[in-house]
Design a protein around this nucleic acid. Structure first.
Lengths: 221, 221
DNA sequence: ACGACTATACTTAGATA
DNA sequence: GTATCTAAGTATAGTCG
């Protein structure tokens, strides 16, 4: 019998012109990279940040242990702790890493709670979509899709933000960590953007995305 | 005849305890991620930034079309251009993307020049290493290894910095782009770090790393 | 547009030098 | 610390529902 598919074909690494093909490839490969990033973080304890803007300017990101902290470290070269000598820095870093590990464990619980809240939001979103269009309902994982905070009831939204903030502050809100990490949650570092929403990726990702409440690939700024 | 190797074994995704094993895995997988990132950028025209800190706090990064611009976009949500309406923003973004493409082409030439300069630096580095130790000479690609600017003659170093800055400013140094991108090259955003050096990864990466001139995995800042 | 499938291309763990 | 090799593990291009 003949083969069911041709299987994977070799492709040249150059701009994909076919737009829908490009969109599919983007989704698949983005997911692949985030998975790899997560694995590297876990396997090697590497701190890292990945930010991806789709060609439609939608943002996706991954960070371990905390994307903002990683970016800040990158930008400051951990310079905010200058003054201490190398040994002191080493000690600080050891403590910091230890706490990151602890935080890692706590994520499990928080993720569950967040997942529940997201589920609620997604239900509402589904219902809205069904009532506004004939499109099929999304079935992907919650973390693959930005979730509109707008969709959450005010109180649920607050809970969600709290959960995020708590998680973030678990590590950040300590005297010496305040020197390494600064700012609180996204609102302070990502000011006044209309149609702001938050998204998460599988592991430890606190990112910020821009788009409209319909999930369009609109010009999301 | 028996098999030469066992081949790849399945591993659990959990912290690798064996330190040298971890180091090897880190290098391999980091390279893998950067390659994937480069492919995603090219295939889908995605703007992206990847920052990785090794557990020894060495930094590696990748950015397309410009890591600093991507980070800034992420942090600001392109907010610096607020005031304009959506349509105007769309036009700006189209222009911006177009210029990114142009810049992309110019990179070819600049890369050659930089490669030459790097080659000089590497020669010197090799000679130093040979005279100070019996270690074998590095044979990897120049972009895989941070290069000490210290190793460059003052004038060459200046050329190198100029090349980087020119490239960066090709896009950044326009009236409306000044609103989107800001700052110049690393020195301004990564202040006074001892033993500062620059590194590049295969595609369009302008990053900054911290370490000593011997490439040690010291506590790098 | 998205998910499942599957043959194939690609990545990589472990061993070795 | 790195480079290379190979078998086996994974990611994914194209296709179909």
């Amino acid at each position: 019998m003949s083969k069911k598919t041709q299987g994977r074909k070799k492709i040249e690494i150059k701009r994909i012109e076919n737009s829908s093909n490009k969109q599919v490839t983007f989704s698949k490969r983005r997911a692949g990279i985030f998975k790899k990033a997560g694995e590297l973080s876990v396997l090697c304890g590497a701190h890292m940040a990945v930010i991806v803007f789709s060609s439609a300017n939608k943002v996706f990101c991954y960070g371990h242990p905390d994307i903002h902290a990683v970016i800040e470290s990158y930008q400051n070269g951990l310079n905010s702790v200058v003054g201490a000598d190398d040994k002191a820095q080493e000690v600080l870093m050891a403590e910091y890493n230890k706490e990151c590990e602890e935080k890692h464990k706590e994520e499990g619980e928080l993720k569950k709670k967040m997942a529940e809240m997201k589920a609620k939001a997604n239900e509402k979103k589904m219902m809205m979509e069904m009532s506004t269009s004939g499109n099929q309902v999304r079935e992907g994982f919650w973390w693959d899709e930005p979730v509109d905070l707008v969709m959450l009831e005010e109180r649920e939204r607050e809970q969600y933000m709290m959960a995020l903030e708590t998680l973030r502050n678990k590590v950040a809100d300590k005297a010496h960590h305040k020197k390494i990490l600064s700012g609180t949650i996204a609102e302070t570092s990502v000011p006044a953007v209309h149609r702001l929403y938050h998204m998460m990726t599988p592991n430890n990702c606190f990112g910020t995305g821009f788009g409209d409440q319909y999930g369009n690939h609109g010009f999301g700024i």
